[in-house]
Each structure stands twice: as C-alpha cells, then as structure tokens.
C-alpha cells in the first residue's frame, strides 16, 4: 500500500482539528476538535510503524499511549468545563474573559468576583 494514503488522511484530519479549535466557541466542541487532531497523529504513528516493520512496535505502543492520555485529557477537560458551567452558567469560550484586562476595562462581562479586584 502506498504510504501517501495514510499521510494525506492524517494531514487533513489534523487541519480540520486546527480549524475546529480556532473557529468553535463551545468548550466541548473545542475538546472534540482536539480529539480529531490526536487521531490524525495516531494514523501517522500506525502507518510509520507498519512502514518501518518495527520489531518493538514503537508506533503502535505510542498510539496506545496517546489514546490513553486522550481519555484522561477528555475526562479532566470535561470536568473543568462542567465546573466552569456550574460557576458561570456558560461554556462559551468568548464569555470566559476574567483574566482578560481589556474585557475587564470595558465592561464587567458578567463576572462574579468583586469588581475592582483585578484592575
């Protein structure tokens, strides 16, 4: 099989993930786009593992690690998103500007802390 097929698919999936991370506003959708990027990478790892005929199967083992770490990342990331939603009643990344000095200066942006503390 030509190596070009997996390489092209992985590059396209990674670019779609980049687009999603930059264009989406919902935090859960951004996490899903990160999953797309990770999958683009894992296709490359498995393809190079098969191309190299690696006796240690480094590519496949690393793919297994990437999948595991992605599962941990999604678990923690969604816990953080839920916590933010519980505190601020939104999961829109545009509304989470508490550390942004410009947003602080123009308007309160619906923040729940005491005004004037962060200025």
């Amino acid at each position: 099989m030509r190596l070009a097929f997996p390489l092209a698919v992985s590059a396209l999936l990674f670019s779609l993930g980049v687009f999603g991370v930059l264009a989406r506003r919902n935090a859960v959708l951004v996490l899903m786009s990160v999953e797309l990027m990770l999958n683009g990478v894992t296709i490359n790892l498995v393809a190079f593992d098969a191309w190299w005929s690696d006796a240690l199967h480094g590519g496949q083992v690393l793919t297994l690690f990437v999948i595991t770490i992605a599962a941990a990342e999604v678990g923690l990331g969604l816990a953080i998103v839920l916590l933010v939603f519980r505190n601020r009643a939104t999961s829109d990344l545009n509304d989470l500007g508490l550390l942004d000095e410009r947003a602080e200066a123009t308007e309160g942006n619906g923040d729940v802390t005491e005004p004037g503390v962060a200025r």
Binding site: M1, R2, L3, A4, L7, A8, S10, A11, L12, F14, S15, L16, V18, F19, L22, A23, N44, A47, A50, W51, S53
Partner: peptide
C-alpha cells in the same frame, strides 16, 4: 481559522507527501 487550517494542511501535505509520498509499505 480557515486560513490557518488551510496553511497547516498545505505545509503538512507538502512536507509529508513531498518526502515520503512515493514510499510503499509492506503490510
């Protein structure tokens, strides 16, 4: 976002297919 993603795709495709596009893998 579309411009950055298109740039990423062009760079990745050029780099990967330009160097390894003709290789074949024996399954």
């Amino acid at each position: 976002a579309g411009a950055v993603a298109a740039g990423t795709a062009v760079v990745l495709l050029a780099a990967l297919l330009g160097t390894l596009g003709v290789e074949r893998l024996e399954l």
